[in-house]
Amino acid sequence: MELKQIVEIGKCLSNQTRVEILEWLKEPDANFPANHTGITNKDGVCVGTIQEKAGLSQSTISTYLGNMERCGLLKMIRSGKWSYFSRNEEVIEQFINQLQNKL
């Protein structure tokens, strides 16, 4: 993992709502209602469902999720016009390991 990605992840984690989103997605079945699209919560949670739980505007949540995807914290899949997000456990683990090794 490059230093630039570590810094970008740090920026994403500097916002309480983004940290909460990562927490919620750690156990999506416990934190979100079931999807009715054939996509399980473990595969990804719909942007609208995350937005409802966060209580913020759709545009704000979309921006947060896009930033988190770009820095690698989240993975996205599309089904028709809907986007579903899940944690990228590999990148999260790499980030934690890099922090332990560098700091």
Rank of each mutant, 00 (worst) to 15 (best):
N67A: 07
Y64F: 12
S83G: 05
L65G: 01
K53I: 08
M68R: 03
Y84N: 09
W82R: 15
Y64C: 01
Q51V: 00
M76F: 10
K53G: 01
G55Q: 06
E69I: 05
G80D: 01
N88L: 07
G66F: 07
Y84G: 02
E89W: 08
N67S: 14
F85V: 09
R78M: 14
G72N: 07
L74T: 07
G72Q: 02
Y84A: 03
T60M: 09
C71E: 07
N67I: 07
Q51I: 00
N67F: 11
C71Q: 04
L56H: 14
L65H: 04
G72T: 05
S86A: 12
N67Q: 15
I77N: 12
E89I: 10
E52H: 12
S83M: 12
T49C: 09
S62F: 06
S62K: 14
F85T: 08
R78T: 13
E89C: 07
G72D: 03
Q51M: 06
C71F: 11
R70Q: 14
Y64L: 10
T63N: 15
L73V: 08
S79N: 10
T49W: 00
S79L: 12
T49G: 00
S59N: 11
R87T: 09
M68V: 04
T63A: 15
L73D: 05
G72A: 05
E52L: 12
K81M: 08
K75E: 15
I50F: 01
T60F: 00
T63W: 11
I77R: 04
I61D: 01
